[in-house]
Simulated scan of single mutants.
Amino acid sequence: MKPSLLLALVCTAVLAVGARAYTSEEPEPLLEKVREYAQKATAMVKNALTTVKESEVALHARQWLADNTDLAKQKLSWLREQLVELWKKKEAA
């Protein structure tokens, strides 16, 4: 689930609960509770993203991409050379 969607759902739930308990005399405490819940949800999402970013799987994936970037560049260069040669042969014919 996307973090932004999770945050939106949490905020919607908080607003729905707050709206149910809303009284016209006390709007400020409701807004403060919504702010607190939003801050807590944001902190939880940031923590989860940091955990995922620093996970062993993510580290291995970044290392694999770094290691294989040069190989991919070499293969693309070889393919480009082959296409240039093929193009030259086609023009000569």
Rank of each mutant, 00 (worst) to 15 (best):
P29F: 02
A13R: 01
M44V: 14
A13H: 02
R20I: 11
L7N: 08
E56K: 07
V10M: 10
M44F: 11
W64V: 07
L71C: 05
Q63C: 05
Q39F: 12
E36A: 13
L31K: 04
C11E: 15
M1N: 06
K33F: 13
A66E: 13
W78I: 03
V84K: 04
L59Q: 08
A58C: 02
Q63E: 14
R80N: 02
L30I: 11
Q63T: 06
W87N: 05
Q63N: 12
L86F: 05
E54N: 12
K53M: 07
A66Q: 09
N68I: 04
L6G: 06
L30M: 09
S55I: 00
K2W: 06
A38N: 07
Q74K: 12
Y22D: 09
E32R: 14
V10L: 13
K40A: 15
A93P: 04
L49C: 07
S77V: 00
W78G: 01
V52M: 12
H60D: 01
L76G: 01
E91L: 05
K40P: 02
V57Q: 01
L83F: 10
C11W: 05
L30G: 03
R20N: 13
K33L: 15
Q63W: 06
L76T: 02
E85L: 03
Y37N: 09
L49G: 02
E26A: 07
W78V: 04
R35M: 10
E36N: 09
E28S: 05
Q82H: 03
L49S: 13
K53P: 00
Q63K: 12
E91K: 01
T42I: 10
K89M: 03
M1K: 13
L49E: 14
L31M: 11
N68E: 14
T12W: 06
A16F: 08
T23R: 11
A16T: 13
P29N: 07
P3I: 15
A61Q: 03
K40S: 15
A41N: 02
A38Y: 06
E28P: 00
T51V: 09
